[in-house]
Design a protein around this nucleic acid. Structure first.
Lengths: 140, 140
DNA sequence: ATGGTTGCAAATTGTTTGCAACTTG
DNA sequence: CAAGTTGCAAACAATTTGCAACCAT
């Protein structure tokens, strides 16, 4: 969790107030926020933080492998602080919220040799789609 | 292949030259093109076609269920003409090539009830990642 | 002090929309 | 002929970038 801060410092990441706030926003909540939502929450604590800095910081966290970028179709990318544990995503088709889920079994087992076309497989991502409880009760 | 055109006409889709060209571009090649690439290829045959029309047409084909929208990267959406048969995607992490694959079993079966969080599930997409044969022999 | 970092605003990229002119059935 | 379509340009949304001021180390 907040050894995220430790880890970053340990990697020689220069710690500024804006970077700390961004990291804290991500670590503090297990939802998957858009860049703009991260900016909004960060700005509650540090009103002068700019969107550009949030974007830059998120981009760095992603390339450091500390945060995952989740691109749900079309809409804004969301950022997943849970990069250390393998998991899949359950996405609401209506409002776009994302939950982490842990399916049983390895998706790679479902791809027969004859369907691998000579690829060296590294992994698989599964996106489950449906309506969240709120949107199920209140469809578009 | 181009019973796509037939099907669309059968649905009462008003056939114009620009719509025909877009549908032909999609049906003619089994790669997954971006909207801009579709526009580029369509414009080779029909130079005056506008981007807006291509976007509108693609959007209609998607909502008619004749074409699938695939967001592979955070970048531009790609359009998959193979909507009539369920399939998943195998993406090369290095060069970005996409192949259609057909895994066995239903991914939904791998998500236990306790991991569904009250969602009404509609389906699942699987993206297999790895290196294609060419990139396996010639890694970055 | 010095080089990485920030903020601003403007540039980019991808996509949608308003509306008048134009086709298709 | 009527209603659906097109093209243009401008609006939009998400994200990136150039550059001068700034501040962790």
């Amino acid at each position: 969790m907040s050894d995220l801060l430790e880890r970053l410092r340990g990697r020689g990441w220069r710690m500024t107030s804006q970077r700390r706030v961004v990291a804290e926003v991500l670590a503090g909540d297990h939802v998957h926020l858009t860049a703009d939502e991260v900016h909004g929450r960060a700005a509650q604590r540090l009103p002068e933080i700019s969107r550009a800095t949030v974007y830059n910081t998120l981009g760095e966290l992603v390339s450091l492998g500390e945060v995952l970028e989740v691109s749900t179709d079309g809409r804004a990318k969301r950022y997943d602080p849970n990069a250390h544990q393998p998991h899949q995503h359950l996405v609401c088709s209506q409002c776009g919220t994302i939950r982490d889920v842990h399916p049983v079994g390895d998706p790679l087992d479902d791809l027969p040799a004859g369907e691998r076309f000579g690829f060296t497989l590294a992994g698989a991502e599964v996106t489950y789609r449906g309506l969240c409880p709120a949107c199920t009760q209140n469809p578009a």
